[in-house]
Amino acid sequence: MENIFRRMNLDTIGIGASMLCAVHCAVLPLLFAALPLLGMEIGENDVLEYCLLLFSFGIGCFALGQGYLRHHRRLLPLLLFVGGFALLLVGHFWAEAAAEYTLICIGAGAIVSAHLLNQRHRRYCRIHKHH
């Protein structure tokens, strides 16, 4: 099982999950605005919101934790991830409508940056044999 996780690039999956969450948050309001014009109505899907947040958090913790513990021991990717995820949570649950999308976009950007930085540090350590 561990061999499967070594072959998969979890940072890339984490970036994809964060981007999926950001696209979901950006497209969903447009979809809600357009559906009544087509005669359809749907409510917000809280289960989907929670699943996306949980998936993004789980992949991020695993990928960044593994990168930190096994490869580079640098805190910046972890701090970016925690800060970005905190912004996502504030945007989703406590922000007013005007600030919601701004906080979510900044949070998703921080999470993507954390994964990219983690990839860079892992690649550098692999090349220079620092683990």
Rank of each mutant, 00 (worst) to 15 (best):
G91W: 04
F32W: 06
L28D: 10
D46M: 13
H128Y: 14
A95N: 10
Y101W: 00
G58E: 08
F32T: 00
L28F: 12
D46E: 14
F5C: 06
M1T: 10
G65T: 09
L31F: 11
L76H: 04
L80M: 09
G39S: 06
L37Y: 11
G107N: 04
E96W: 12
M1Y: 07
L69Q: 09
M8R: 05
Y101F: 07
F32V: 00
A114S: 07
G16W: 04
A33Q: 15
A22I: 06
L35K: 02
D11G: 06
L30P: 00
Q66H: 12
P36D: 10
L78N: 02
C61D: 02
R73N: 04
I104H: 02
H92L: 14
A33N: 13
F62K: 05
Q66K: 14
C105N: 14
G16T: 01
L30C: 02
T102H: 03
E44F: 12
Y68W: 11
V23F: 13
C61K: 01
G16I: 02
W94R: 12
E96V: 08
H71P: 11
H121M: 09
I13E: 03
H115N: 03
S18N: 10
T12L: 15
I15K: 09
L78D: 01
G14C: 04
I127R: 15
L53K: 07
F55S: 03
R120A: 07
G107D: 04
A114H: 08
L37D: 07
E96H: 13
L76T: 05
I127H: 14
E41Q: 11
A98D: 12
I59M: 07
L37F: 12
A99Q: 12
C61T: 07
T102V: 13
L80Y: 09
I59H: 05
L69I: 05
A63L: 07
R126W: 02
E41N: 09
R73K: 13
L10V: 02
P36S: 08
C21T: 10
V47L: 15
L89T: 12
F62W: 09
S56Y: 00
G65R: 06
F81R: 01
R7N: 11
P29S: 08
H92M: 14
F93K: 11
L64I: 15
C51M: 15
L48S: 05
L35Y: 13
L80E: 04
R123A: 08
V112S: 01
R73L: 03
W94V: 08
G43Y: 08
T102E: 06
C125Q: 03
V82R: 04
L48W: 11
F93I: 05
D46W: 08
L38M: 15
L28E: 15
L28N: 06
S56T: 10
Y50F: 12
I104C: 03
Y50D: 11
H115I: 01
E100Q: 11
Y124C: 01
L89I: 15
L75I: 05
G58V: 03
G83K: 05
R70I: 01
G58D: 08
G16V: 02
G58N: 06
C61R: 01
V82M: 14
E49Q: 14
S113V: 02
L88W: 01
C25S: 08
S56D: 08
F81C: 01
I106D: 10
A98P: 00
V82A: 15
I104Q: 09
L87E: 04
I106G: 11
F55T: 08
A26M: 13
A95D: 10
